[in-house]
Design a protein around this nucleic acid. Sequence first.
DNA 1: TAGATTGTTAATCGATTAACAATC
DNA 2: TAGATTGTTAATCGATTAACAATC
Lengths: 206, 206
Amino acid sequence: MISGMTIGRLSLYRRILTSLAKENASNIYSHQLAKLAGGTAAQVRRDVMSVGCAGSPTHGYNITDLTASISDFLDAPEGQRVALVGVGNLGRALLTYFNRRRPKLNVVACFDTAESKIGQVLASCPCYSMEELTGVIQRERVSVGVVTVPADDAQNVASRLCEAGVMGLLNFAPVRLNVPPGVHVENLDMSMSLEKVAYFARKDKD
Amino acid sequence: MISGMTIGRLSLYRRILTSLAKENASNIYSHQLAKLAGGTAAQVRRDVMSVGCAGSPTHGYNITDLTASISDFLDAPEGQRVALVGVGNLGRALLTYFNRRRPKLNVVACFDTAESKIGQVLASCPCYSMEELTGVIQRERVSVGVVTVPADDAQNVASRLCEAGVMGLLNFAPVRLNVPPGVHVENLDMSMSLEKVAYFARKDKD
DNA sequence: TAGATTGTTAATCGATTAACAATC
DNA sequence: TAGATTGTTAATCGATTAACAATC
């Protein structure tokens, strides 16, 4: 079993390798990748091993091969579809941010309660009413939901997404979500992160 | 020394306690708070101990006292000022999101290169040109910077913020930032989080 | 008192780091 | 070959969890 830490780092390695490939780099050593990713060489070697890619002591890892191995490991062959609920300021920013990043991971639908948004195409993503949620999720075979609604609505939205068959949630609402077993929730609590930085920005001055 | 984990949880506890106080709750037990925050009772007791708040075996913790103790611990008495660089879709959403949340932590300035934004007030936050960065940071005594510029500009922006005296960075750009010793960087990598959820949403189906 | 919770220490768990033979 | 890196195991580290006497 691979830990969440490793998955996160693999995602980061892929992004680094992709940009290196554009600069025509062909090989990389564990310590070089570690430096770029902010980890250790041993960590990189272990992570790389877990995706089944082998390097050589003389040339390190082939960038093309390693990128392909990571993609084989991280991506679903048939791709995965994402839906976003709550197209406020943050939701709209995320639509732009997420789409066109990975070919295998697309935001195919968004949902909102505002009449003015329903039926529109926002950041090349069609916006539906909340009543259409279950139908659209199932028709489009969406497996990942992004929750960007106010805290008070988040649990209700999460429950509906799970009932519709979503297996993973990226939650931006500052509340803990109760979900059925087997559903993975990743919390991205921006207020918490800001307070954390503020605390250490202060502490480090002492 | 208190770990980043604890700081994050304390921030979460405070938010939970604040909303409980609005519902006129007066006391809470460690296991109740743990359930709301998604941790264990022992964890809560340890965290609470670290802010120097004592409970009683019969009534648990007084919500008002605990909230005050956490705030004493997390907040700088004189408050802290935040600046945001890069007022794109995401930056603008964050301005709205962050401000008016905590009285002791305010976004007092934002910066962008676009002529159309400079001089404007965006989400009740004045927008300055990049040339004004050092001056404004120092005049407003900003200690925390939020980086929401494209990846290619992030290191340059981070360096300028650090030179101007910022001691903590909240980085939304998908790159690793090199900063002087003593500066705390918190990375909020949304693409990584989405890929992580997608991976586990897929795995859990097996 | 009896019973549940607190404060705190010891045991567990998992991730990171160090180390090193095998390899090119 | 000599030298640096890989693959992989053992040691370390730190956070979480379990446990329990003290408390109200």
